[in-house]
């Protein structure tokens, strides 16, 4: 009984020691940093597995779903992305323009200014729903995945390009137009009353 235990202990210990020795000597080579799509990815069974990021980087898929990016010139500020977001990481503030302010690259007419377009990447769950609903395809996921920052708030990416003065100006212009419209309406109403 004791002898059996003893011999099996010696045998199994030796087996383990041989195994680790094999790995010790196999560490002369490193496995190549390969895309998982490459055909012999799983054929590399021996050698060091460490990828020395950032000196080495694993290739990412071409259509990888990593950080969000917004092409603000193509944005019509429709707010669909903010509405669909399951974690509410997109915050949009819009200002109505007094007239059509231009066209996106796919020909959609822009009628709203984006006063604020913040995406909090710390909240983002990388589901990609916003990229699906975007009518102009201006919000996309990029292959950028290294998001190490010293402060949490650095992960809130502002995409709006308007300065505070511009925002104030556009807001004033819109209010002025509204007031003018109101005045015109009231004038028309008065004129109607007088005719009667």
């Amino acid at each position: 009984m004791l002898l059996n235990k003893f011999t099996s202990a010696v045998k199994t210990s030796w087996k383990g020691l041989c195994l680790t020795l094999k790995h010790l000597f196999a560490a002369r080579h490193s496995r190549d940093v390969k895309n998982i799509k490459s055909s012999n990815y799983f054929e590399q069974q021996e050698g060091v597995v460490t990828v020395q990021y950032p000196h080495q980087q694993l290739p990412v898929p071409e259509v990888g779903r990593y950080q969000l990016d917004v092409e603000i010139d193509d944005c019509i500020v429709c707010d669909l992305c903010a509405k669909i977001c399951p974690v509410d990481c997109i915050e949009i503030e819009s200002i109505k323009a007094t007239e059509a302010i231009g066209q996106t690259s796919d020909g959609t007419v822009k009628r709203l200014y984006a006063a604020k377009f913040d995406i909090d990447m710390a909240k983002c769950m990388y589901c990609g729903l916003c990229t699906v609903v975007c009518p102009t395809e201006c919000i996309t996921m990029t292959s950028q995945y290294d998001v190490s920052v010293p402060k949490m708030t650095d992960l809130i990416y502002p995409f709006a390009e308007m300065t505070p003065e511009e925002i104030a100006e556009k807001r004033a212009a819109f209010e002025k137009q509204q007031a003018e419209k109101q005045a015109a309406k009231e004038a028309a109403l008065r004129a109607q009353k007088q005719q009667e």
Partner: peptide, 13 residues
């Protein structure tokens, strides 16, 4: 280093 190599790692680099 030895522990790293045995575990297929690189250790301090």
């Amino acid at each position: 280093k030895i522990s790293a190599f045995i575990q297929d790692r690189l250790g301090p680099m």
